[in-house]
């Protein structure tokens, strides 16, 4: 593997470094540029909100940061590894151990119970005694008595709690959240916010979150604004 730790922008604290990231989609005759020359750095333990209007490229950026997709140009370095140079399986192994996800639409498997949904990443990462760990986490998010319920039998807020439990299950070093409160009412969104922030603090996880929610964004240490595929450097601010 190429050693990038000696790169000029690398600091000992940076967990995620992005250089000149560009993403284009080939539409046959035209190419659509979704992201253009995005560079940023996120430090270990930091919480960062990515904000911007719908269609500005937030979610695409998140996917690239998490290694769920590969960029057209540029480089993403996660924990010292240039993920665009990793093979798909190497990226998967990285995700399994180091990365957690929370999605806007929860993405729970409908056939599985709450407990089984949380066990899934633990099993994939060969965690010892996944069931005990999953129980503990579901208890932590307040669903200790709903272990055998399937997503259909849970409310939206409850489903997102299960998803959060799943995201923190493997004790990731970095958590990516895509509009985690987007599908929830204010009250429930508020509760999910609290939960997410609390777990983040407890575990010392780095949090990268795409959101529309101003209050949520405000609770992050830093806010990055994306507009039409560009990172608005001027508005990179620290809370």
């Amino acid at each position: 593997m190429t050693d990038l730790s000696s790169g000029p922008r690398q600091t000992s604290e940076a967990i995620l470094t992005v250089t000149d990231l560009t993403q284009r989609v080939d539409l046959g005759r035209d190419t659509l540029t979704i992201l253009q020359g995005v560079s940023l750095e996120i430090k270990r333990g930091e919480s960062v909100a990515i904000v911007g209007r719908s269609g500005s490229g937030k979610t695409t950026l998140l996917g690239l940061l998490a290694g769920l997709d590969t960029p057209t140009e540029g480089e993403v370095v996660l924990e010292g590894k240039a993920i665009s140079r990793l093979s798909e399986d190497e990226r998967a192994a990285l995700r399994a151990r180091r990365v957690g996800f929370v999605f806007q639409s929860f993405q729970l498997l409908p056939a599985l119970t709450a407990l089984e949904n949380v066990m899934l990443p633990l099993e994939l990462a060969d965690f010892p005694d996944p069931q005990a760990r999953a129980r503990e986490l579901l208890g932590r998010v307040g669903l200790g008595d709903r272990l055998t319920h399937t997503p259909r039998q849970l409310s939206g807020g409850e489903q997102q709690r299960v998803a959060i439990a799943r995201a923190f299950a493997c004790e990731p070093v970095i958590l990516f959240a895509d509009e985690p409160t987007g599908n929830l009412d204010n009250q429930t969104g508020q509760e999910i916010q609290e939960l997410l922030m609390a777990l983040n603090r407890e575990q010392g996880t780095t949090l990268v979150m795409v959101t529309h929610d101003e209050t949520l964004a405000a609770r992050c240490q830093r806010r990055l604004t994306i507009e039409a595929g560009h990172l608005e450097a001027a508005r990179e601010e620290t809370a």
Binding site: L68, D89, A92, R95, Q107, L109, L120, L124, R166
Partner: peptide
């Protein structure tokens, strides 16, 4: 569709392709 969604999720959660 369910299977594909599950497959995608498993990959997101870090399942290797071969697995």
């Amino acid at each position: 569709q369910d299977r594909q969604r599950e497959g995608a999720l498993l990959r997101t959660l870090g399942g290797r392709q071969s697995l």
